[in-house]
């Protein structure tokens, strides 16, 4: 929506759907997906090249107008995440960085402590830091204080497509954070994305659900519509259930004879 931009780290986004480049069957579909979804920010990862194989450059499939969000995947400590972030910036990826520090290989849960430490360092170095975290309010406030440009709580484990399992905790972040809240990971269907936006999330980041759909281009478009619908509903301030008061005034009726009250 044109009049409702999202600002992160001084950059304005008119699309609140962030996407990722992982798991595409054919990376050439990424450009089409971006065009169809209107997504203006996409994640990439940094890896050692395979010296035997042929290297291809994922950046070839991303239009220059789309903001790159390199992630620190592979990092197991804050120090490793910091190193990857610096490399990504030196490589010309811009100031954005998604901090993703994962020590648990079973559920791929982010390590909130290492993530906070990396955020502190990188924010000081001028990065636009988007930490990927478990939705924990005191942590989110610390990330804010450390200079995070947004917080990215997970809805469900990475790639699980299970939706907003952490919704009540994310709601606390939305209610209390000054920086944008971007729901990352777990969003498996457009309706999940719409629900996150209805709740008041500032954006959602969707990778697996788009990349692994049979038609990732059409799915990108579907997510974009869902995000827009959810955002519109949030802004339109859904009518909430209202309790009708009883005709009598048991609590405030005394005000009609207030002179008698000493």
């Amino acid at each position: 929506m044109e009049n409702d931009p999202l600002t992160i780290g001084g950059h304005e986004f008119t699309s609140r759907l962030f996407t990722g480049t992982g798991k595409f069957a054919d990376d050439r579909r990424i450009a089409d997906m971006l065009a169809a979804s209107g997504s203006q920010l996409i994640t990439v990862a940094l890896r050692r090249i395979d010296l035997g194989g042929k290297s291809h450059n994922i950046l070839d499939f991303i239009p220059k107008t789309v903001t790159l969000l390199p992630n620190t995947s592979g990092a197991r400590t804050a120090a490793e995440a910091v190193r990857i972030a610096r490399i990504a910036r030196e490589a010309g990826c811009g100031p954005f960085i998604k901090i993703e520090v994962i020590t648990d290989t079973k559920y791929l849960m982010p390590d909130n402590y290492e993530t906070l430490a990396a955020t502190e360092t990188l924010a000081r170095e001028g990065f636009v830091v988007l930490p990927y975290v478990l939705p924990d309010l005191p942590l989110a406030k610390r990330l804010e204080d450390a200079g995070a440009a947004a917080v990215m709580p997970l809805g469900a484990p990475i790639g699980s497509n299970r939706g907003l399992e952490t919704a009540p905790l994310i709601a606390l972040l939305i209610e209390n954070c000054r920086v944008p809240v971007v729901v990352d990971a777990g969003i498996g269907r457009p309706s999940h994305a719409a629900a996150a936006m209805e709740m008041g999330a500032d954006a959602v980041l969707v990778n697996t659900a788009i990349a692994t759909a049979e038609d990732p281009v059409a799915m990108g478009r579907a997510f974009s519509l869902a995000v827009e619908a959810g955002r519109m509903a949030y802004l339109a301030k859904m009518a909430e259930e209202s309790r009708t008061a009883r005709a009598s005034s048991p609590l405030t009726g005394f005000l009609d004879r207030i002179e008698d009250i000493v």
Binding site: R243, A245, R246, S249, P250, L251, T252, G253, L255
Partner: peptide, 10 residues
């Protein structure tokens, strides 16, 4: 609207 406000406040 004091009464409905009071009901919810309570």
């Amino acid at each position: 609207h004091l009464e409905p406000m009071a009901q919810k406040a309570l």
